[in-house]
Write a protein that binds this DNA or RNA. Structure first.
Ligand SMILES: [Mg+2]
Length: 622
DNA sequence: TACATCACG
DNA sequence: ACGTACGTGATGTAC
């Protein structure tokens, strides 16, 4: 943008010629290219930015490909010394805007949710998102960890030399995010190339998805439309009461000082309580506490489970537990969340990831809003900091026992289906069955144990795990499991069959036929093979729940768009829960409608039920 | 960067 | 005879 070199350096011309890549520096060239883009059924798009945070990133340039090997790059913000004069970005974007916003012009990209954010910063609403190769490759194999563009190019395209150069560039990109300092000579071969590769990859990957009509439905009808929904959720963000968090911060700091003082008094030693290594020395050498459990690397564990047990005999572990609890909440939430508030919006903007889990669940990061505390008192106080804007309230709607219902549906077990059909308290019903006792006589402890069994089943139950969870003997746990499978024989058969299927075909499926590959199912290592068997049991259940809530998000978003715009915003998804910001004038309407929509997201052999509540904050909404 | 720990569903 | 609960992300420490 500084220099006035109108003509391209000769060595750049050479690159252009070889790869048919074009660098756009003149207005007329862009006009011509826009016509080329319009002439294509689909084109690929790739945005280059100066930041990984979507709320802060600015465009450095943008590239497009229309056919294999035919791609171009429009730089606007390369400002290294002697950079050639580049087109004015406002002018470029004004020319591209109609094309980018036209829903009838199909686009393919890599992680287009990011491009949506970037373009939104420039007042452009990207429409016509037809394909996303990041998501497509995850649909094909959710177990693979290599979903980045370079790895996909290595897997799907057989251009070895191309890939090597790309890897080099990628490494450079990781080290430094100063793309504006990269010269055009360096950038052209890969900025345009990324667009080229995205288009080439799309042709390969989508062909594989098309082969399977059910995979195609998940991809086309769930995942692709979900991109825009997640984009909106991220961009909307959630309002945080940082004054409340700061107040807790102050109180907790005081309590932590007290705890430190008490701990040092007992141990007669000032040490870093956060250091597991130092704590190990104190507990198991100085204090001579018995070693209850070892970590995978063979060192004595100081985990909560161990400290709980030691706390039965000594006063110190209880102090450590409280210290741990407080420091965790302090650093992860109370101190972290206020720092994450965006200066412009005053809200927190998480990132939802569509391709980070094997089962099809979403994940959330920066910050993670799917692990906000709720299980203890202080945790719920943190949750109180999630609030609604003036005249709005927080509405939370979550599925009731969705995973157990799915297990009943998938297995077809008569007994479990019946229990749900009759609207019974499922844990009481389980306890009554296992113990052969009338449901009215089930105690709290018996219900609690049955609940642990029900959870265990979803995790691919083992006597060891259940015994540990309930603090009972392995023998006793095995008795429970045996009695459960006797009463719910359909569940037993379902799980046996799932192990067989997983072994035979190497993958399992959700209700909607999303695939989860289990490469370890044939491992010679028995530990790994057993772990894969448990995943084989868990994945269809967890994955079906993920599919269902994604469908629900689409249904609800459609209703919001056409019937409740400006009055309802979808803010968060926490696996079986959707959280909304709702105008006070339509709280009851929204609550009822959203429950109906969520409950209709899938037709199972038993009803799908939700619980809903609203309040001033996320805690009140529970 | 690996490990241990712990927040959530 | 093995040594295990399923799926995530973030933190602080130690190497
Ligand atoms: Mg629930």
């Amino acid at each position: 943008m500084k220099k006035t070199n109108l003509s391209l350096p000769s060595h750049l011309e050479t690159i252009n010629k070889d790869d048919k890549y074009k660098i756009i520096l003149a207005e007329q060239e862009l006009i011509q290219w826009i016509e080329k883009l319009k002439a294509k059924k689909i084109f690929s798009i790739y945005t280059k930015t100066n930041h990984s945070n979507y709320m802060l990133a600015n465009l450095i340039g943008i590239s497009f490909a229309i056919e294999e090997k035919i791609a171009m790059y429009i730089p606007f913000a390369h400002d290294y010394q002697d950079a050639p004069k580049q087109l004015n970005y406002k002018w470029v974007l004004s020319k591209l805007k109609p094309l980018l916003e036209d829903p009838t012009r199909s686009k393919v990209g890599y992680n287009l949710k990011y491009d949506l954010h970037i373009l939104a910063r420039y007042g452009i609403q990207l429409r016509g998102i037809q394909h996303d190769i990041m998501i497509a490759s995850h649909i094909l194999n959710s177990t693979s960890r290599k979903n980045d563009i370079v790895s996909l190019a290595v897997d799907f395209l057989e251009h070895q030399c191309q890939c090597i150069s790309l890897e080099k560039i990628a490494r450079k990109g990781k080290q430094q995010f100063k793309f504006n300092q990269i010269t055009l000579e360096e950038t052209l071969p890969y900025s345009a190339k990324y667009a080229d590769i995205i288009l080439q990859l799309h042709n390969k990957i989508f062909k594989k998805i098309e082969h399977d009509s059910e995979l195609k439905l998940i991809y086309k009808n769930i995942e692709i439309p979900l991109i825009f929904i997640l984009f909106k959720m991220e961009r909307t963000g959630v309002l945080i009461d940082d004054a409340l968090l700061n107040l807790h911060s102050y109180k907790i700091s005081n309590r932590l000082q007290e705890l430190e003082f008490k701990i040092y008094k007992i141990t007669n030693n000032r040490f870093n309580i956060n250091s597991t290594k130092q704590l190990q020395t104190i507990l198991f050498e100085s204090m001579n506490f018995p070693i209850i459990k070892k970590t995978p690397s063979g060192k004595p564990s100081t985990s909560e489970e161990v400290l709980q047990e030691l706390a039965l005999y000594y006063p110190l572990p209880k102090l450590i537990l409280e210290y741990r609890n407080l420091t965790k909440l302090k650093s992860n939430y109370i101190e972290k969340l206020p720092k994450m508030i965006n200066m412009n919006t005053g809200r927190i903007h998480t990132s939802y990831h569509q391709v980070m889990t094997t089962t099809g669940r979403l994940s959330s990061s920066d910050p993670n809003l799917q692990n906000i505390p709720i299980r203890n008192k202080l945790g719920r106080r943190i949750r109180k900091a999630f609030i609604a804007k003036d005249n709005y309230k927080i509405l939370s709607v979550d599925y009731s026992q969705i995973e157990l219902r799915i297990m009943a549906h998938l297995s077809g077990d008569k007994n479990l289906l019946n229990a749900f059909q009759q609207g019974k308290d499922i844990h009481i019903a389980t306890a009554a069955e296992i113990l052969s006792v009338n449901a009215k006589k089930i105690s709290n402890e018996q219900r609690y144990r049955a609940k642990a069994i029900n959870f265990g089943l979803i995790y691919g139950i083992s006597a060891f795990g259940l015994a540990k969870q309930l603090n009972i003997s392995q023998y006793e746990a095995q008795q429970y499991i045996n009695r459960y499978f006797k009463r719910y024989s359909g569940i037993f058969l379902y799980m046996e069959n799932l192990r067989k299927i997983a072994y035979k075909q190497g993958f399992v499926e959700t209700l909607f036929k999303r695939r989860i590959y289990l490469p370890e199912i044939k491992s010679k290592n028995k530990i790994r093979q057993k772990a894969a068997e448990r995943s084989a049991i868990n994945a269809p259940i967890q994955g079906t729940a993920a599919d269902i809530i994604k469908k629900a998000m689409l249904l609800v978003s459609e209703w919001i768009e056409f019937k409740a715009n400006d009055n309802v915003e979808l803010l968060m998804q926490v696996h079986d829960e959707l959280v909304f910001e709702v105008h006070k004038s339509i709280l009851e309407t929204a609550k009822n409608k959203i429950q109906k929509l969520m409950e209709s997201a899938a037709k199972l052999n038993i009803p799908l039920l939700t619980k809903a509540k609203y309040g001033d904050d996320w805690d009140q909404a529970h």
